[in-house]
């Protein structure tokens, strides 16, 4: 989630730059890794982490998953069963990209995984990178390896934090110290600036977006009410003037009726304005409280689970295991 959030912020921040900036020359499509012994959903999420890390390298233009599978579906390709580089290159031609990455995630044992990854150059139809890595640990460790691999595939030096994660382990105090802790106080500060920002900062994307959406809605409604109120004001003044100038009883009565209606509308809009404003402030306060008190949602692969429910595909046995750091 952290990476997704970082990615969102990255995209938002880089949007204006990318309008004028130069895009990387090469494009790359990462196909979902084939899961063996692990859930397909988990394999998809892990693949997504590779895509995100490839984006971070800035060396290639990474095509997003939705776009890739939309194009393939449109071309009538429903199942991808590519083994050879030629077949992968054909897919790359269909997608009109320079590189295609395919791979497999294999669960060898309880805490042994193998990543088999191939990067094929579409034009030359040859495999430019091929790696088979065995990882001892959990899915979080696979993610670390894949993140390193992303830089490696681009012939770039990985960031220090990734190297430290690999060398010392994700839970090493030095590594943890390198990662800036997302404190409650920082989250509160962000929530003060705009509702939802604090929650998103703490990894609670859904509530954060909900706070933002609600706040924008209430602010929009409040502005709308204020505009309606402002529009009614000159109308009221105009009719009040006519009322004061009127000498015929029927006209006076007519203007009183009009003024009564306008006054009721204005009072209604004023009431709405107050309701929406109070709601907006309430959402703001709730968002602050949520940012401060809600539990931080950590990266699902990045935190350690001491008790795990596991399934061994080879022995076809389910079990509950305890792990100690």
């Amino acid at each position: 989630m952290k990476s997704i959030q970082i990615n969102i912020i990255f995209i938002l921040m880089s949007a204006p730059i990318s309008l004028w900036g130069q895009k990387p020359d090469n494009s790359i499509a990462v196909l979902d890794f084939k899961p063996v012994g692990i859930e397909r959903k988990q394999a998809e999420k892990i693949t997504e982490r590779l895509r995100i890390q490839l984006n971070k390298t800035g060396a290639v233009q990474q095509m997003n998953r939705k776009w890739i599978y939309d194009v393939l579906r449109r071309e009538g390709i429903k199942k991808i069963k590519c083994i050879t580089p030629e077949c992968t290159a054909d897919l790359g031609n269909t997608l009109d990209v320079n590189y295609v990455v395919t791979g497999e995630l294999i669960k060898e044992g309880d805490s042994t995984f193998t990543i088999d990854i191939n990067m094929v150059h579409v034009q030359s139809r040859i495999t430019k990178k091929s790696k088979r890595i065995t990882v001892e640990g959990d899915l979080g460790d696979i993610v670390v390896e894949l993140e390193l691999l992303a830089w490696n595939m681009m012939w770039l030096k990985p960031p220090e934090i990734l190297l430290a994660k690999q060398r010392l382990g994700r839970h090493d105090p030095d590594v943890v110290a390198m990662l800036k802790p997302r404190t409650r106080e920082d989250a509160l500060k962000r929530a003060m600036w705009f509702p939802g920002m604090g929650s998103i900062y703490r990894g609670n994307i859904v509530p954060g977006c909900a706070f933002m959406g609600l706040e924008l809605t209430f602010m929009g409604l409040a502005i709308n009410s204020q505009m309606k109120f402002t529009d009614l004001k000159p109308d009221r003044e105009d009719n009040l003037e006519k009322y004061r100038a009127a000498t015929v009883a029927d006209s006076i009565k007519k203007y009183v009726d009009i003024l009564d209606r306008i006054d009721a509308d204005m009072k209604n809009e004023n009431k709405n304005l107050l309701t929406y404003t109070v709601s907006a402030v309430g959402i703001w306060a709730l968002s602050m409280a949520h940012a401060y008190y809600a539990k931080q949602k950590k990266d699902e692969f990045a935190y350690f689970r001491p008790v795990r429910f596991t399934y061994d595909p080879f022995t076809k046995q389910a079990s509950i295991n305890w792990y100690f750091l």
């Binding site: 009040l240 009322y243 009127a246 000498t247 009183v256 304005l273 107050l274 404003t277 109070v278």
Partner: peptide, 24 residues
């Protein structure tokens, strides 16, 4: 927040106070 709460209201003069046509 207090400023927002207080500021986001409009003062509406009571219509009865403004209806002062002596021929009404």
């Amino acid at each position: 927040v207090s400023f927002l709460l207080l500021g986001c209201r409009n003062d509406v003069v009571d219509l009865d106070e403004e209806l002062d046509n002596p021929l009404d």
